[in-house]
């Protein structure tokens, strides 16, 4: 089995792709993992396509290069499917998670990726439960469903730890509920 799990997240500037990567590694480090998280360093513009990377491993991570062959790719903004090649460098056994109302089969057709594809309506869930379009938190619930290094419990605990003092009990719970629903509703 591969020693390091490598994750790439596609989003648009301002959608919280960097925060999502940060959440993933914060959760993993509490489970005793070695981690890395960093964005693709380019001009940062709101709304422009951007990528962030995360690595999780049981041993020291030595390299600092960008993730070229991701094990998991998460797409926070479905409109990116027509704009960037989200499958670049993906292998046959890689996993693609997309925030969309489409079925996984449809995403396979659109991207030409034949491996495992999961879809979840993270936007719908976030509008419904959080009250605004913040798909980056719920989509992490979908990640917990398919990635052994990240658990829903760990993510929930981290969300509580980080959000409670900032946004209060009610909104924190809404974020946790959103992750749980995405976890349960992920298709694929």
């Amino acid at each position: 089995m591969k020693e390091i799990t490598e994750i790439r997240i596609h989003g648009r500037g301002g959608q919280g792709a960097k925060t999502a990567a940060q959440f993933i590694v914060e959760t993993a480090i509490k489970d005793g993992k070695f981690i890395q998280a960093f964005p693709e360093y380019g001009p940062e513009r709101t709304g422009a396509p951007m990528k962030t990377y995360a690595r999780i491993s049981d041993s020291v991570i030595k390299t600092h290069e960008p993730v070229a062959e991701p094990d998991i790719v998460m797409v926070i903004d479905p409109t990116l499917l027509d704009v960037v090649d989200v499958t670049e460098g993906m292998k046959k056994d890689s996993i693609l998670i997309v925030n969309t109302t489409d079925e996984p089969e449809k995403v396979k057709e659109r991207t030409g990726f034949s491996g495992k594809v999961y879809t979840v309506d993270a936007t719908g869930v976030s509008i419904d439960l959080i009250g605004k379009n913040m798909p980056n938190t719920p989509i992490l619930g979908a990640l917990a469903k398919v990635c052994k290094h990240v658990t829903l419990e760990g993510l929930s605990e981290n969300v509580r730890h980080k959000f409670l003092s900032k946004i209060g009990e009610e909104k924190t719970n809404a974020n946790i509920e959103a992750m749980k629903r995405a976890y349960n509703e992920v298709k694929g």
Binding site: A21, F34, I35, A37, F38
Partner: peptide, 12 residues
């Protein structure tokens, strides 16, 4: 330390 790579990269 390397700008961005280390200064902005999250590690243990």
């Amino acid at each position: 330390q390397d700008g961005f790579v280390t200064s902005h990269g999250v590690e243990n």
